[in-house]
Amino acid sequence: MKETSKPSLDRIDVKILRALQIDGRLSNAELAMQVNVSPATCHRRTQRLFDKGFITGVRADLAPEMVGLGTLVMVGVALDRAAPEHRLAFEEAILKMKEIIDCLLVAGEFDFLLKIRCRDMDDFNRLQGEKLIALPGVRQTRTFFVMKSVKENVRLPF
């Protein structure tokens, strides 16, 4: 039995994806020129890449310090393993918290790894005391204050 595979990308699709990863603000005309196709072809192909889920969105990368969110905190969360329903309740609660910018289900010592942006340590302390420890099923948390970001949100290497 043959496995179902992902939609394939040709060299032009790959060029479009690479160019948009570098600069998502390119106009269709600029992008078409970079990948050496007509603007109509470029628009059609780019739209197909959106429709097929290769491109999930276009946004501006903000400087956290400039918008008052200069403190980056990673939090490992262990849930109560005796109650599997806690995982879904935890995930639903996390989706409602704007301070949490990433939530990853992980294998290892913790069940989830949270990436949180806040103003400062006092802001995080308030968040921890009022919201994080009250999340459904939380048994334990471990907090890591990020001292320096060496590499973050880089382009996909394909």
Rank of each mutant, 00 (worst) to 15 (best):
K2S: 14
K2M: 11
T4C: 06
P7I: 04
P7T: 05
S8L: 07
D10V: 03
R11G: 01
I12L: 11
I12M: 09
K15D: 12
I16N: 03
I16Q: 02
L26D: 03
S27E: 09
S27L: 08
E30D: 14
E30S: 07
E30N: 09
N36D: 15
N36W: 14
P39A: 08
C42L: 12
R45W: 13
T46L: 15
Q47E: 14
R48V: 03
L49S: 05
D51I: 02
K52N: 10
G53T: 07
I55T: 02
T56P: 00
V58K: 11
R59F: 15
A63G: 06
P64D: 08
E65R: 11
V67K: 04
L69P: 03
V73M: 07
M74S: 10
G76I: 07
V77D: 00
A78I: 09
D80P: 00
R81Q: 14
A83H: 14
A83K: 14
A83P: 00
P84S: 04
L88N: 09
E92F: 06
I94S: 06
I94D: 08
M97Y: 01
D102V: 08
C103V: 07
F110V: 11
L113F: 06
I116M: 07
C118W: 07
D120H: 03
D120M: 07
D120C: 05
M121P: 06
R126F: 13
G129Q: 12
L132Y: 08
A134E: 15
P136W: 13
P136V: 08
P136S: 09
R139I: 07
R139N: 10
Q140F: 13
T143I: 06
M147H: 10
M147L: 15
V150Q: 08
V150Y: 12
K151R: 13
K151C: 03
E152M: 10
E152Y: 13
N153Q: 09
V154H: 04
V154M: 12
F158H: 09
